[in-house]
Design a protein around this nucleic acid. Structure first.
Lengths: 215, 215
DNA sequence: CTCCTAATGTACGAACTAGTACGTTAGTTA
DNA sequence: TAACTAACGTACTAGTTCGTACATTAGGAG
């Protein structure tokens, strides 16, 4: 345990490390991996470029650390979700809405994921501890689907990961592709006035998919 | 009209220009705007870097030309779609499937769009003639929705652009986020064996959304 | 056949950028 | 309080990368 609430020292490894990570997250999210500048990250910190290499080793390792932290934060948020007290249909709608809100609140994370996909997840696959874990989100969906199936509200088996993909795709696209979509169709998907509309639409989409069969 | 079928000349402006565009598309799609190297593009061409500057003016203008061409090709493909002979539900499913197939067949385009969104569509908005046009895809959906509404198969009004977004989000995510999704959940969304599954799932999702109300 | 210009190639420069060698100091510990 | 080390700063380098000045030639016009 580190000494609690020490009056701000001039030298503080934890603070410096954390500050670099914070600034680097913004820079990488903003400009992508290749667009990000180590010098710019350093300049926005109270410390110097030397410290980036001292603590992280290099640009790539810093980026991996940024990814790791970003995913860890998402996981942590997912842990707190509780929808067991709701009936299956309401529960899955609620979960979709939470995902919707989460994407909206963390555009930086979305941008990092987009960037990482351009790089074919070559860095993410090096963030070892993250890869093996199965996320809490899937467990949650799995539980809801099982309840819905036994209750008979959900008409047939659906796979938890597939439903997660369906929800994520919708939420991710709205944030990630906001700019090209807005440019082409003249409609800002993130406009405040349409937020509720798109949130409801997502819930309807998922619930109707699960509670209905064709014809 | 240019002279038809001239035996390959040593100097051919059109051929050189086209070849640069072709190679540049791959490079930009592969590595993003900042990751792409002008020298690498030139090296993979039968001509030299000088010609890139001669014909396009610079890296950024070349990238804009690449975007412009990519979007134009998509538009052209959309023009050929004909689903008027199908009943509304089948038509919208068919349209979704065509979109699905199209995304799968053009991962380079998807990657360009991802890259462009990281750059907040700053280049796309400079590709003037593309922005103003309303895409044929929206017109198609609009028509299907109207038919479905009058027939009574589609239970309520839905907006064409919204439905387009819903379909695109699903198709786009499957291709664009393939790598991070695969790394985290250990499931390759582009695996051949699950292709039909995901294609059907999309169709079901859209049709059920349009033909059902809640409860 | 000659001339002219669009098209092409070569070689180079200026600016940027990741990374490092080397020197310094704060804060802890004995 | 002396000494030691983790933490930090400065100044530089090597390599890359976009862009261009300058030289050359193919091929059509007259």
């Amino acid at each position: 345990m580190t000494a609690p609430a020490l009056p701000d020292r001039q030298r503080d490894a934890d603070r410096t490390r954390a500050e670099i990570l914070e600034v680097a997250t913004r820079e990488f999210a903003d400009r992508g991996y290749n667009g990000a500048r180590v010098d710019d990250i350093a300049a926005r910190t109270r410390t110097t470029k030397r410290m980036i290499y001292y603590y992280f080793g290099g640009k790539e390792q810093l980026y991996i650390a940024v990814l790791q932290r970003a995913y860890a934060q998402i996981r942590q948020a997912e842990q707190t979700i509780d929808v067991d007290h709701l009936d299956p249909a309401t529960a899955i709608r609620r979960l979709a809405e939470i995902t919707f809100d989460h994407h909206e609140a963390h555009p930086d994370f979305i941008r990092l994921v987009s960037t990482e996909n351009i790089h074919r997840a070559e860095h993410l696959s090096q963030a070892h501890d993250l890869v093996t874990l199965n996320t809490p989100a899937i467990q949650l969906i799995q539980g809801i689907l099982e309840r819905g199936h036994t209750t008979g509200v959900f008409h047939r088996d659906a796979d938890a990961i597939d439903i997660h993909m369906m929800i994520s795709a919708y939420c991710f696209f709205r944030v990630a592709n906001r700019h090209t979509f807005g440019t082409i169709f003249g409609r800002d998907l993130m406009d405040h006035s349409t937020r509720d509309h798109y949130r409801t639409m997502l819930g309807d989409m998922i619930v109707r998919y699960l509670t209905t069969t064709n014809h």
